[in-house]
Design a protein around this nucleic acid. Structure first.
Length: 633
DNA sequence: CTAGGGTTAG
């Protein structure tokens, strides 16, 4: 027994142990709680009956988030010694652990056992429905609330609102809010969150301004809302107001929320500011969660080396932290580093399925085919992880990129799970890159069955036909596309300059500096051409032609369309508005196209700039005429 | 002489 406080225990009787367990539950002190549990089992078994010790342990595990342990204890306690609070504890544990169906099932059992249903149970129930994103069940339950008379309780109504908000039914949410006689800050905050999510940042701001009272949660939600819509400057000024005018401090959760918003919007300026604040407030004692959020933020903002520094400075690292670091390195194409770090990781923590998605995609992005296959083979045998669809997708990607398409196809055939869009889409992409028409056609057929409205696949294949000189088939596909109507996600690129986000779509003329940007663009294309750039029209989606034949005018149109790609506009703006030599960081919602990739390589050389592009899949570092992905993406 | 369970930022 290493614990003096336990040695000093006057007696192991429930009378003394119970309050102690309660304290552990309140403080989430699971480690000490487990020791007490062991103590109960080893020394006091004969005294457990009717002592409420098991109930206290149930609450301990439930409030510490150890759902399996809570469930086990719940089953061990005889039904006659369980009351509503015990049932609720397990229910909320299920809800928080993203097991909403188990929570609903438990509720049904509660009713079957004629347990008393009070307002707290109802709150838990709506929480589970919110997680389920199932309005059907939710509104049914809402009907029950009205009947049973819980509609007067503020907290129950808050939970109902939250459910409607999470399910996207803003109208219902607003109605519940409007009908409430009493409203708390939480009611307003739930409303704010729902409105921001579904009606946008402007309507959200209206709610925020109407709030009679705001706590730090409301402020955080509003700031994150701004950041999520690209209004980084507004977010930052609101953060300063919150802290310097209203005197709010940032806690762990606030820090994590803000950092995740910075990661998403690519705002390293605010991210760095939050980092400094965290260091000042907590020094090196920043907890694992904040440390992990920092690693994630720096990685996603293109500063993977800073992410590594933060990671190495963390006093402790858990699985989540390791996963964040490895997937950060993976998206930067640092496959070798991932492979080097992995052995260190398994000395500290047990890897899970997410770890291997990071490791396999790192191998894929870096062309480490043999390494990747080796990890994949050891997944089940060494680490006891059943490969999921995403792992197969990584492998298909890995083999496909390397041109080993037959092996990729065999793997798909041998999979115990039916291939999904990611798997087949990756196969099609590789077929397109390596000109394997037949296999590509086959993959496309299956993809169309899965998602008839997605036209991206048609475009890939029609480009393949065109490249292979099969004009008839290419034209046939164009016709299909035309009749379906091209419903492509518009490509967007953004760039941060002076703390402000500038967003561009293809051919965008809405920016205040549009004239300068287009002058710069003409100039840039000229300089690119004289440096050997040839527009890659094959990678361009057909613009307007009927497909009769590609005349000169048509191909010129295609070239023009290429020049107007959003990332080119963003680069021009960046070149114009930053000092020579400043690296440019560009964020794109889709994958970067072949032509822009080739163009940016030359840009990095002739303008002597480092250009960093975050696309949907990974990062590209253009420097002195080459890209970190080695044209392997 | 029974505590214990619940809603908003992740």
């Amino acid at each position: 027994m290493k614990w003096p406080i336990l040695q000093a225990f006057p007696s192991f009787s429930p009378r003394y142990l119970r309050p102690f367990l309660r304290l552990c539950a309140r403080q989430s002190a699971l480690t000490i709680g487990k020791k007490l549990h062991a103590l109960v089992l080893t020394t006091g078994v004969y005294r457990i009956r009717n002592s409420f010790l098991l109930n206290a342990l149930l609450h301990l595990y439930a409030s510490c988030g150890d759902t399996p342990a809570a469930h086990k204890l719940f089953d061990e306690i005889p039904p006659s010694s369980k009351d509503t609070a015990d049932w609720t504890a397990l229910m909320s544990s299920f809800s928080r652990d993203n097991m909403p169906l188990d929570a609903l099932h438990l509720f049904a059992q509660m009713r079957g056992n004629s347990m008393e249903i009070d307002d707290v149970v109802m709150v838990c129930l709506f929480c589970a429905c919110a997680w389920l994103r199932d309005v059907g069940v939710g509104s049914q339950v809402h009907g029950c609330v009205v009947k049973t008379g819980f509609q007067g309780r503020v907290k129950v109504c808050n939970a109902v609102m939250d459910m409607y908000g999470k399910c996207g039914m803003v109208g219902e949410m607003r109605k519940v809010f409007g009908d409430m006689k009493e409203k708390s800050v939480v009611s307003w905050t739930v409303l704010l969150d729902g409105v921001l999510k579904w009606e946008g940042v402007r309507s959200g701001r209206v709610v925020f301004d109407e709030m009679p009272e705001r706590n730090e949660v409301a402020w955080t939600i509003m700031i994150v809302g701004y950041m999520g819509s690209g209004f980084c400057r507004e977010g930052f000024s609101l953060l300063s107001e919150m802290m310097f005018h209203w005197g709010f401090k940032l806690n762990h959760v606030t820090l994590c929320s803000l950092l995740s918003a910075c990661a998403q919007s690519g705002d390293v300026l605010m991210g760095g500011w939050v980092h400094v604040y965290g260091l000042k407030m907590m020094g090196m004692e920043m907890d694992i969660m904040v440390g992990t959020a920092l690693v994630d933020m720096y990685s996603k903002c293109g500063r993977v080396d800073t992410a590594v520094k933060v990671f190495e400075c963390m006093p402790r690292r858990n699985l989540v932290a390791w996963n964040a670091m490895l997937s950060g390195l993976a998206m930067h194409g640092r496959g070798r580093v991932v492979v080097e770090m992995f052995p260190r990781m398994i000395e500290e923590v047990k890897p899970d399925d997410l770890t291997f998605i990071a490791v396999l995609s790192a191998c894929s992005h870096s062309g480490l085919v043999d390494q990747g296959s080796c990890y994949f083979d050891s997944l089940e045998s060494v680490y006891g992880i059943t490969p999921k669809i995403d792992h197969y997708a990584c492998m298909v990607d890995l083999l496909g990129r390397a041109g080993r398409l037959e092996e990729a196809e065999t793997l798909i055939k041998q999979m115990p799970i039916a291939p999904n869009e990611v798997v087949l889409g990756s196969l099609l992409g590789s077929c397109s890159a390596h000109g394997k028409l037949q296999l590509g056609e086959h993959a496309l057929q299956r993809l169309i069955e899965m998602d008839p409205h997605n036209t991206e696949y048609h475009i890939l294949l029609s480009n393949m036909y065109a490249l292979a000189g099969k004009r008839d088939q290419a034209n046939a596909l164009r016709t299909v596309l035309k009749t379906k109507g091209i419903r492509k996600v518009p490509g967007m690129s953004s760039i941060h300059v002076d703390g402000q986000v500038h967003q561009f779509s293809a051919g965008d003329k809405s920016h205040s500096k549009t004239q300068d940007i287009y002058l710069m663009l003409d100039n840039m294309i000229q300089r690119l051409r004289s440096a050997g750039y040839v527009p890659n029209t094959a990678s361009q989606v057909f613009s307007g032609s009927d497909g009769a034949e590609d005349n000169a005018r048509d191909s010129e149109e295609k070239e023009q369309a290429l020049f107007l790609h959003s990332e080119k506009l963003a680069v021009c703006f960046g070149l114009l508005s930053t000092k020579p030599g400043t690296p440019l960081y560009i964020f794109k919602n889709l994958r970067i196209c072949q032509d822009c990739h080739a163009a940016l390589k030359i840009v990095s050389k002739i303008y002597n700039r480092k250009v960093v592009v975050r696309d949907r899949n990974r990062f590209h570092y253009f420097k002195q005429g080459s890209c970190s992905c080695c044209d392997f993406w």
